[in-house]
Design a protein around this nucleic acid. Structure first.
Length: 205
DNA sequence: TAGGCCATCTGGTCCT
DNA sequence: AGGACCAGATGGCCTA
């Protein structure tokens, strides 16, 4: 009986070779499909970023999202073949190569799914990047993590809501809150985050 | 060196 | 059936 197994060893290098160091001057674009990736700036750094202003983790470049689709599912072949060591019996090596055929339907499908997943995560990350542009941060602050971005956004929304409900001038309201030590119970939500310290950096128009 | 954060792969589930 | 979404696993990078 033919034993069946699939080698899921990932040709990670060829797969994420798209991700390069970001260009700090890159301007964030809200449309995921227009986000470009620079193959020319590959450095192996996977999660570079710029911390301030509306800057994206995505560098300027030549590859688009749609280019991800065109990556050949056969990129993993060389890695797999390399993994057959030279002292491996020739027959076993041949069998392995036959089994790991990169054009196997499952592997092709799996590779396509991986690419779609990467694109999906890319769009999520671009949304996080956009959100980071809308929450108050210090000029010298390092990039907020995803979880911190979400928490700060929640707190910020809560604050803005309170300001709206109060009908007061935003700056006056915040100054008053800070002066009074947030005695008001309704401050609880946004007062629990780092938001308060950031408020002094906001220019209330 | 441990812990935090992240990207990626993967298989399961849901949706169209 | 195929794609979207999700969560777990894994490994790399960075920082205290």
């Amino acid at each position: 009986m033919e034993d069946i197994f699939f080698d899921f060893d990932q040709d990670a290098a060829s797969d994420f070779a798209f991700w390069g160091q970001m260009d700090p001057n890159f301007q964030f674009q809200s449309q995921p499909d227009s986000i470009l990736v620079d193959c020319a700036t590959l450095t192996g750094q996977l999660s570079p970023w710029s911390s301030f202003g509306c800057q994206s983790v995505f560098p300027d470049a030549q590859l688009t999202f749609s280019d991800l689709d065109s990556q050949s599912p056969q990129l993993g072949l060389s890695a797999e073949l390399d993994s057959s060591s030279t002292d491996e019996p020739h027959e076993i090596s041949k069998r392995r190569q036959r089994r790991l055929a990169p054009h196997h339907p499952y592997k092709v499908q799996r590779h396509a799914a991986n690419i779609r997943e990467r694109k999906r995560m890319l769009s999520i990350n671009s949304a996080f990047e956009e959100l980071r542009c809308h929450v108050p941060t210090f000029p010298y602050e390092k990039r907020l993590s995803k979880i911190d971005t979400l928490r700060l956004a929640i707190a910020y929304i809560a604050l803005l809501r309170e300001i709206l409900m109060s009908g007061c001038d935003p700056k006056t309201y915040v100054d008053e809150c800070m002066k009074n030590g947030y005695k008001n119970q309704t401050n609880a939500i946004w007062n629990t985050s780092d938001l308060t310290a950031r408020l002094s950096w906001i220019k209330w128009d």
